[in-house]
Each structure stands twice: as C-alpha cells, then as structure tokens.
Design a protein around this nucleic acid. Structure first.
Length: 385
DNA sequence: TCTGGGGTCCTAGGACCC
DNA sequence: TCTGGGGTCCTAGGACCC
C-alpha cells in the first residue's frame, strides 16, 4: 500500500495560521506586483475560477475581492518540516516530492495502524492536531494511482483504491487527471476521440502506439489500466541547476543584462561548489535563456571544452551565448542561466584524465567560505560589464 | 488578458562511430 | 555510384509538474 499525502491549499493554509482573519475568505498567495502569478488559491477563491499558475491580474478580474498575500517561503518550509516529522512516525519509508507532498510506503503497518483507511485518518488527525493543517490522502498499490486518488477527494479527504480495482476507478475520469497529461496532450487525445480514461482502455496497445507514437502510446496503455512502477523509490538525481529572473521593467542595455547574468551565474557557482555528490560537482555545459516581451522564448547551450565550477569561467561562456542569442537593443522580459551537471570527466574520450582541482577553483571555494563568515558583500568581485 | 521559478523528460535532426 | 542499421552526443524547443 502506497499513500500519497498532499496538504490542502498549503501556502494559503500557512498564511491563515499566521493571520486567522483570512479564514473563510477568498485568498491567494502569489506574486502581488507586476507580472506575478498565483501559487496557491483558497477554495473560496477557486469558486471564482482562480487557480494556481494563473496571472495575478487575471485572478483579480475574476474575483475583485480577492485578498492577495505575498509568499513567505520561510514559513512554508518550517511548517512542511513539522508536518513530515509527524508523518515519519507512521513510516520511515517516505519520499517528499515537494514542500506539500510525499509518498509513503505503508506496507506492513496494519498491525500498528489498522486498515489503510484507518491509518490515513490517524495520520491526517495527527497532522491537524500538531500543525492545524489539513491534508488529503490517496491510497493505492502504486504511486501513480495513489496520486490520482488524492486528487479525487480534495480537500480534507481520503480515497482508497483497492488492489485489482484500479481500472474500474479510473474509467470514468477525464484524461487530464493522469499526471503527465497536460493541456497539450489532452487536446491531442480529445482530437482522437479520447475524452475519458475508459476511451483509452478500449483501444489496443497497437492502436495507441500506431496513432499516438511509441512513447505516449505505451504510457497511456499502462496508465489507463492503473499500472505503475512497483518499486517504491525511483532513482532520480539532479541533472541541472538554473536561475532565471523576469524583470518588472524590460531592460534593453547590455550592462543591466550582464550584471544580472553575473549574479545568477555566481549563485549557481556557489551551489555547484557546495555540492556533496561527486557525480554532480561540475558544470558539463552552460545554458542561456531569453524571453522577449512578446513571450518569444529562446535558449542556447554549449558543452564546455573543460568542465568547471569557477564563476568566472562559467560566466564567460554564458556571456558568449548572450552575445550570439540576444538581438542587440531588443528589450528583455526574462533572462536565465543554467548548467548541466557532470562529474568533471568528459564522457567522450576514454583516456581523458579526471579533472583536477585548479587554483582558481580553490580560490572560489575560499571566497564562498569568507562570504559565509562575513556576509555576501565581504568579497567584491571586480568585473567590468 | 497575460503568462513565476526551479526542475525533469521527450522529440528531432545532424554529427559521428562501429 | 549508391547508400544499412544501431547507438550516442549535441543542440533547440516544448510539455509537464509543483
């Protein structure tokens, strides 16, 4: 039995703990100024059509009395920690997938907590008693179905899909309920006459792969029958790091863009040098992202001739990408920088020596240490833009 | 009407190798 | 003069998730 636990409108609920006057009202947490989007909406606000990821301006048009609260991430991670400390008393085998969501392996806990449904209710009560937050729980034989089940009975509910009855549970649901089926895939499926899970169940694997492609066809065949991976943990390592910034006023001068690029690259560099896992200590490639005011978005990337974790070396490469990608003088809405991670050896060339730490790298580490001790501004980097 | 930020995975063409 | 098949890497773009 796998549980999927999801905290109800988490950011809004946290804000209500801090300010009870928000209870019972249409509230949304998110970007309050300029080009913001909604991160979390109360159920009162959802009645008006307000949803997360919706532009704040649009939300305000739909619901003029909407109370907007600026997000305070410190509060959310604190509350999240409290919740998972409570949840860990039920099983040590859990995987957090975000601040407000986790999968729990509850196999073999019947003696302690009773039936799956009883265990879920005990868990939800404990979370509420300890933090004042409500959670929804989905129970199934695999992660995918458990997650769909959570969504089925939100907020503050439990859904148990008995083993062997997955296909029956899924049949009436809209395809959109399957994680991985977003707006674009939904449109494609609808255009093929597939509206609900049962419609997909009626197609053979050959028909699905023939009409929709190998990958999507196989995925839907399995997902529609409630099949999922049997392993609890799914291997997944960080493969990239990035920073991006949407400007409130769209700059069109080189200096502003390069200063911003430098500060993002420096953050990435510090994170890279703080990385414990030897397989992920070095940047294998760098990436640049640009978005213009009309939302035209482009990215450029380049594999480095030599893997590095030195800010200056990363910056020089990203700057080159900016020079080639950016139409000089055109205003920029969003600027982003990123790295693809590697272990410092190059994949190509079996006889390449593993990259040695250079003096520059040691200097960069020293700067990080000093910044940690004396503050961000302890070390000034002399750079002309 | 206006669209955040940090990620993962997939696709598709071209280069290159065996 | 004509031209297979499989695999990996690189690059750009896009879908999707929270």
């Amino acid at each position: 039995m796998i549980f999927h636990l999801d905290l109800d409108s988490f950011f809004v609920s946290c804000e209500r703990l801090k300010n009870p006057a928000l209870i019972g009202k249409p509230v949304a947490v998110g970007g309050t100024s300029g080009h913001g989007v909604i991160s979390s909406a109360s159920y009162e606000a959802r009645k008006f059509g307000v949803r997360s990821a919706m532009p704040t301006q649009q939300a305000l048009r739909m619901c003029p009395q909407l109370i907007l609260v600026k997000s305070t991430f410190g509060l959310y991670s604190e509350k999240s920690k409290e919740v998972f400390e409570i949840v860990e008393r039920f099983t040590p085998t859990l995987e957090k997938v975000s601040v407000d969501e986790a999968y729990l392996d509850m196999r073999g806990t019947e003696k302690l907590f009773g039936t799956p449904r009883e265990a879920a209710e005990k868990m939800r009560s404990a979370v509420f008693a300890g933090t004042g937050l409500t959670a929804s729980v989905g129970i199934a034989a695999n992660r995918r179905v458990a997650k769909i089940a959570t969504d089925f009975n939100k907020p503050n509910g439990v859904t148990y899909v008995e083993p062997g009855r997955e296909a029956e549970f899924l049949a009436p649901l809209e395809l959109r309920r399957i994680p991985g089926v977003g707006p674009s895939t939904e449109t494609l499926l609808n255009a093929n006459g597939l509206l609900r899970v049962r419609d997909v169940q009626a197609w053979s694997l050959e028909k699905l792969t023939g009409r929709l492609g190998e990958s999507l066809g196989h995925f839907l065949y399995r997902a529609s029958r409630g099949e999922g991976s049997t392993a609890f943990f799914e291997e997944s390592e960080t493969r990239s790091m990035s920073r991006e910034r949407t400007f409130s006023e769209f700059p069109k001068d080189r200096v502003t863009l390069k200063k911003e690029l430098w500060s993002m690259v420096a953050e990435i560099g510090a994170e890279l040098r703080g990385e414990e896992d030897p397989a992920l200590k070095y940047a294998h490639a760098v990436r640049l992202k640009l978005r213009y005011p009309d939302f035209e978005t482009l990215s450029r990337s380049r594999v480095l001739t030599k893997p590095t974790r030195v800010d200056e070396e990363l910056y020089d490469e990203v700057e080159k990408l900016l020079e080639t990608a950016w139409t000089t003088g055109r205003p920029v809405r969003l600027l982003g920088a990123g790295v693809v991670l590697g272990d410092g050896s190059r994949q190509l060339g079996l006889f390449e020596p593993v990259y040695d730490e250079t003096k520059k790298e040691k200097l960069a580490d020293l700067k990080d240490t000093l910044r940690g001790k004396f503050g961000e501004n302890a070390i000034k980097t002399g750079r002309d833009f």
